[in-house]
Design a protein around this nucleic acid. Sequence first.
DNA 1: GCGACAG
DNA 2: ATCTTGTCGC
Length: 258
Amino acid sequence: MEVVRPEFLPDPGRSREEMEALQREIAGVASFADDLGFDPSDAALDATPDEQTGLDAADAPVIVGVDQAFRDDESVSAAVAIRDGAVVESAEGRAPLEIPYIPGLLAFREGGAIVDALESLSVAPDALVLDGSGRIHFRQAGIATHVGVLFDVPAVGVAKNLLCGTPREPLADPLPAGTRVPIDADDSMDAPAGTVVGYAFQSRQYPNPEKRHVNPLYVSSGHRASAETAVDLVAATCAGYKLPEPTRLADAYADELK
DNA sequence: GCGACAG
DNA sequence: ATCTTGTCGC
């Protein structure tokens, strides 16, 4: 695929102020409304052809999971494309690590490798699933938003920890599988207070949560999807594990490359 | 000054 | 994210 907004490429050499200004600009052109072009349920891994309503495996949407691993002074990005639960293509990208990890500026540290990987992908993704936040970000432009806007493709962010925002209800330790708790914007964010910027989503849970439990995922829209649809897509691509399959596969491939 | 923060 | 074995619970 190809970058369609090169002016938004994450340049690690910019000053912090310039990076933040770019993120506000990106948030301005990002869309947090549904514009997927497919039904999230059709992204289910077990989308077996159904004579009545199902679609052919060849017509199922292509979901691309993206994740990074680090080796010495370089970032290695892995992009794994899945269609109907099967891997149709894998790509890798690399870029030198030029800046340290700074909360809120993750895209400027890892974005280069991600762009490198996605540019070498020959299939056209119907949606991207990235590790990190989308709209759950101080300036509503997390790494999922940044990458989604760069390529103008639907994107969702899946994080294991909450960067900012406030769960509408306190997150009980063992949340039942399937639970969705809205994440409201707080004072640290640009979004108007009360805006639902994402969801805490319990993708799976152990049989006896009282003894051992799984923490929820923090899902947010990156681009061209609503917060609800972002969760629907993640829920459809989970296969019994905490992380959605596209992410798990990209994670494993990135480690393999490293 | 203190707190708080994806990967 | 990464450094790392066993161990607990399912």
